[in-house]
Design a binder for these strands. Structure first.
Lengths: 350, 350
DNA sequence: ATGAAAGCGCTAACAA
DNA sequence: TTGTTAGCGCTTTCAT
């Protein structure tokens, strides 16, 4: 077997010196021309640009970055890239970063603190210009993230943040979202509302629980501990939680789940039991996953502005990336949620 | 307002020279120690490592990469990161790359050839060690991808490939998947099966159509052009296609859609029309999106091994990244699909 | 408008 | 075992 042609091609890339040699110029002139420095004769400039193109020149960012002590890469850390929620955000981040001339280096922690620390090291080693991060479920120790800042790399958190660090943050007002949903359910006449809660370690889950509790209290609904079922963020958690609720002597007339996936898991189990949604029991979720519009019945949920999260995160990071005399003060942006009413709630049986 | 402390911190990073100065050693010795070079006294080595840690040293990859003429970054180009299908693959790629010491730089083309070309340039400029790519829907000109190879960067395609380039590829046997589904439908007794096709530009969509046609022919089913509705990959396309099928004098008894999203769009429209799925009309999809298990009825579909795609792509790329005397021959891996039977097909009415 | 020299942080060949 | 020297490709003074 002979080697294929491309494999035999020399890996030596064209440099500004190659261009300079060909044109009988000094490589600094070439460098200037390529970066539109004014001190280059228009004619030379055009010649250099044409030759660069023709020689298939691609600037070596390593060399430029080394020299300039900066890079054009934004590092992103998310818990799970395969999760709809995070991939939407990363997608927006990538587009926005690109618009501003930055590439994106992506890391996922897989909800592991260990992996998260490795990700942080990798991003520091790669001298990324800035980092956008959403922490793992189990991140308590903020030191690793602090080391990003210690390395002089600007850091912005989104969604899941380290409270103790003085950086910009983009968070979602989960409390408000939970309140919206609870008010909606109560308005429809539901009185015995269960909550399938998320992991207690996650601030956003706690906020939702707090919203549930506060609205119950505000409307004088009896607080029944058995109506609050702890769990995780997965559909299975919803199935199991539904089982526990079905076992109650006095069943709830509505279920507010910590997210759509859990709500769907619960709904499936409730329907298996022969209950009609929403006639026998209403079900509501959170997050407005794509999937929630396609369930039967379609799921009432709370929309979390993912695109906005991604856009805003980049926006908050950018000022730190441009060399400036004054470093901007950290900002905390709290984004509003929006109630999305669909058929899974609706008029209660009585 | 005073500046926050971290912002005031010098951006100057610790280098091997700083460590050397502190220990009264030469920086090359430090360099050796940090890379476990044998020619360093154990005692010195330990001292250096401890000091590095203490001084919070992070190797500068720019400098190392510049010197070594290589990087530790794998570039990935996908059409849409927010799409479940691609984000699952990228997730797996990221994990696998990480396992082998590589970081991942992510680019999305947003199905735009222009953006794709920009992505390619960015990856070449960043001197990534290798590229994994899935082309946009409209990529016809293969030159930009060839320029990756011309730059001496190994390239592996997955899912959507450039046929003309002699690189390794990971593809899915969509033809086989379509055949599996059609045989399933025919086995259940359906005889008038419609196909909601994808964009004719996408090879995978054409393969599915071909499978549909071949199986129809093989079983002697009448080929009715009106039963083949062209479209895209979105739910709306399914809704519109369903409308066209409903308008037919002789309606189909089953619908095989190019993917789950389209199938769900169609199903929604069919149910609106008062038709029962699968009693009045069966519906089948393709891809096994997460969502397909949660529709009512759950959707029969064809599983595409995303994790396997990601894993295999990295596996095919890796040998090209390690410096070796012989460059491996390009390999084309064709992954099998798997029929997933759920309730949306089922026994036909008669 | 162009050239010369220096250096970013690192590694590899060679010298001691 | 450690130190010396040179250079990866680029940009930024400073000189011409």
């Amino acid at each position: 077997m002979s080697m294929n042609p491309s494999a035999m091609k020399s890996r030596t890339n064209v440099t500004i010196k190659d261009i300079a040699r060909k044109l009988q110029l000094h490589h600094t002139t070439v460098s200037r021309a390529l970066r539109d420095h004014p001190d280059v004769k228009e004619e030379t400039r055009r010649l250099i640009l044409a030759t660069a193109q023709e020689m298939n020149y691609h600037p070596n960012t390593f060399a430029a970055n080394l020299r300039n002590q900066k890079s054009n890469v934004i590092g992103v850390i998310v818990p799970e890239l395969s999760h709809d929620f995070f991939s939407s955000i990363v997608s927006e981040v990538t587009n926005e970063a690109d618009r501003h001339g930055y590439s994106v280096m992506i890391c996922q922690s897989n909800e592991s603190v260990d992996q998260e620390n490795k990700n942080i090291s990798a991003l520091i080693r790669n001298r990324v210009a800035g980092v956008l991060a959403s922490t793992s479920q189990f991140t308590i120790n903020e030191t690793p993230f602090r080391s990003i800042m210690d390395a002089g790399i600007p850091l912005v958190f989104f969604d899941r943040v380290c409270r103790g660090l003085a950086t910009s943050k983009v968070v979602v007002d989960f409390y408000q979202g939970a309140c919206q949903m609870m008010e909606h359910l109560i308005e429809l006449g539901f009185r015995r509302i269960a909550h399938i809660a998320g992991p207690a370690d996650v601030a956003g889950a706690r906020e939702r629980l707090q919203g549930y509790l506060d609205v119950c209290r505000r409307f004088g609904l009896p607080l029944d501990e058995r109506l609050i079922v702890p769990g995780g963020f997965l559909a299975e958690n919803g199935v199991l939680a539904a089982e526990r609720l079905l076992a109650l002597a006095h069943r709830p007339d509505a279920v507010f789940a910590v997210n759509d996936e859990v709500a769907i898991g619960a709904m499936i189990r409730l329907k298996e039991e022969g209950l009609q949604v929403p006639q026998d029991i209403a079900v509501a979720g959170f997050d407005n996953d794509k999937i929630s519009a396609f369930t039967t019945p379609p799921l009432t949920t709370v929309d979390v502005p993912r695109v906005e999260i991604g856009k805003k995160s980049v926006e908050l990071l950018l000022p730190y990336l441009e060399p400036a005399k004054t470093t901007p003060e950290p900002v905390i942006v709290r984004l509003a949620t929006k109630l999305v009413v669909r058929a899974s709630t609706g008029h209660p049986s009585a």
